[in-house]
């Protein structure tokens, strides 16, 4: 039986605000980014021929509709609504925002799927975005001296290996948390990566689906909490 909690009136006011802020900022952001091609057109008179534009539009659309749909359905199971709006305004979701939100929930000692987790992940995503934007702006301001420094062959490997460094650390975190959940998805992912050249838009859903299926079996058997 579903129980009706008295707090539900209150939470819906919160949720309304979350969706309002999210919708307004996302759509404003979309309009702002279109200032780029529109300025090229109106201020500098540079406009691609209609045929080229249409051609590109059809290609990118046929790719992005299924990719976006699958990603949104997958990610919205894991993140609260405010975290989703932040993630979709700024991007770099799997490589920066999700990992830092997960550690933040661990630090605050809340479960990702609870209401507390929803709030903490929203705060964490916002903190992650602020840090990330500041780093990017510093990168923009220092782009000339930085590109010289980063081309130094001695330190080059460190910057090429940022992702393996991140996912090695995060992988250990999940393995220590519950190795039974991680072992089969990991094997599937390695096989996919080794023997196919499928894009992540396909491999991520495959692995998420397998992982959930494995978890369901383990859960039914009482092998995971």
């Amino acid at each position: 039986m579903m129980e009706i909690k008295p707090v539900s009136m209150d939470t819906s006011a919160y949720e309304k605000k979350v969706h309002l802020i999210g919708r307004v900022t996302l759509i404003t952001g979309l309009l702002l980014t279109f200032l780029l091609p529109i300025n090229l057109w109106l201020k500098f008179g540079i406009l691609p021929p209609f045929k080229g534009l249409l051609n590109a539009f059809v290609s990118i659309t046929s790719l992005m509709i299924p990719v976006s749909l699958v990603e949104i359905l997958t990610f919205s199971t894991m993140m609260g609504a405010s975290a989703m709006y932040i993630a979709y305004l700024t991007g770099n979701i799997t490589n920066i925002k999700m990992p830092s939100a997960i550690i933040a929930m661990e630090v605050a000692e809340v479960e990702p799927s609870s209401k507390e987790g929803e709030i903490v992940s929203g705060i964490a995503m916002a903190g992650s975005v602020l840090a990330c934007e500041i780093i990017i702006v510093l990168g923009v301001l220092l782009s000339v001296p930085l590109s010289v420094k980063l081309n130094n062959p001695v330190i080059q490997p460190a910057f090429q290996q940022i992702l393996p460094a991140l996912f090695g650390s995060l992988g250990a975190y999940y393995f220590l948390k519950d190795w039974k959940l991680s072992i089969i998805p990991l094997i599937i992912a390695i096989l996919l990566s080794k023997f196919t050249k499928l894009p992540t838009a396909i491999t991520i859903p495959i692995c998420v689906f397998t992982s959930i299926l494995v978890a369901r079996v383990l859960y039914k058997k009482g092998l995971v909490e």
Binding site: T74, T77, M78, T94, N95, M98, P99, I102, E111, P112, S113, S114, L163, P164, L166, F167, G168, L170, G171, Y174, K177, D178, L181, S182, P185, L186, I188, A189, I190, L192, S193, K194, T200, T203, I204, C207, V208, F209, T210, S211, I212, V214, A215, R216, L218, Y219, V224, E225
Partner: peptide
């Protein structure tokens, strides 16, 4: 809860698999 953790594991396993 287990479902969400499993979903995270699924996403990250892709990035662990490449290296």
């Amino acid at each position: 809860n287990t479902f969400v953790n499993a979903a995270f594991v699924g996403v990250f396993s892709i990035f662990i698999a490449d290296p």
